[in-house]
Design a protein around this nucleic acid. Structure first.
Lengths: 188, 188
DNA sequence: GTGTTTATTTGACTTAGGTCAAATGCCTGT
DNA sequence: ACAGGCATTTGACCTAAGTCAAATAAACAC
């Protein structure tokens, strides 16, 4: 993961002035209040949100229960992937967990920019690869680690997560019930 | 899924003669015998394998047990994704389940071709998007469906899978123990 | 600050699916 | 056709984690 993120950063640093400038021009900085929805169930994800400040989450509802699938921190890119790449309505919500500041880029505008600067297709590829690697890793961890190990791993990667994020979201993100996670925590 | 696959096929059909020709030139048709390994644990995945005939699987070993993560049919592209994109040693095996015929393309050669024909970067992006969508779907199904539902879903998508693929691999692919899958089958 | 809502913990009980072991069925090579 | 080795089934038992319900604790609004 880390390796690939470095790749992405190096790649962005290597973009020439003109492309960087063009990207800045088409992106708007916006703010959302805690609890606000950036995207709802049934909508098409027409924008990407690059988180500058604050935290957010992505979730879907199954059987009346919210399943949190991703937790965003600064420098993360928040989109509902399937809705975004297919430009069709999706089942995911994106919600601010604190007041947040994001840089917003329109799908269509970015697509146009890719045809003008093909280096942006390479960037898109790197970002998509990064997401696929993240998904693979998540699948691997869910297969091979038990509830306690998944929680410990999350803590070791992101020690500050427990301070800021409500336990329900963390539990759901780890595919653990709230009660089980609470018991795991009681034992440390 | 289907939607995106159509996109990929349309895209490939729209490639111009020169690019298609160049792709053909750099790819070798090879055959493997049932049981042969196309890739092993600890090796770097330096080639992509486009399955033309037969079936194969990808797996890793955890705790001494084989976990099958993908089953390949004709027209599928077999790679160990993380090893391939990072060009570093990986933990996955790819193994022929029958005698197979594949079209083999070298990572480096394809990378070079992408710099020459940037339309191939777009193709790479589409393929990577497709893989990420597939991973998302898999994660979703593992979260929301129980063992029986996962098996029924697999059957409905791929009715011929039970005829050809040993049950152990199917069970592992569905994250079900062999015994539980056998009991599920006994009940229909 | 006080009451009200929301988050977290704790307890008692249930369950889907796993594990271990043995039996049976079914290929494959000679 | 038959022996030996895989593949699948069946049985008995176990366990990690889920569910439901009630008790605290923490956060928030007024």
């Amino acid at each position: 993961m880390g390796v690939h993120l470095n790749k992405i950063n190096e790649f962005i640093d290597s973009l020439d002035e003109e492309v960087t400038e063009a990207l800045t021009v088409v992106s708007d900085v916006k703010t959302f209040k805690k609890g606000d929805y950036l995207l709802r169930d049934g909508e098409t994800c027409k924008k990407s949100y690059f988180i500058q400040e604050g935290t957010a989450r992505k979730f879907y509802i199954n059987d009346g229960k919210e399943i949190t699938t991703e937790i965003y921190f600064p420098d993360d890119l928040a989109i509902s992937f399937s809705s975004y790449v297919g430009q069709h309505p999706g089942r995911e919500f994106i919600q601010a967990l604190t007041d947040i500041k994001v840089s917003v880029t329109d799908y269509i505008v970015f697509a146009a920019l890719k045809t003008k600067y093909s280096v942006l297709t390479e960037l898109d590829l790197l970002l998509t690869e990064h997401y696929a690697l993240w998904l693979e890793e998540r699948l691997f961890e869910l297969h091979t680690l038990n509830a306690t190990q998944r929680y410990e791993l999350l803590l070791s990667r992101d020690p500050q997560i427990i301070k800021n994020i409500p336990l329900t979201y963390i539990a759901s993100y780890l595919s653990i019930s709230l009660e089980t996670l609470s018991r795991i925590r009681a034992k440390r």
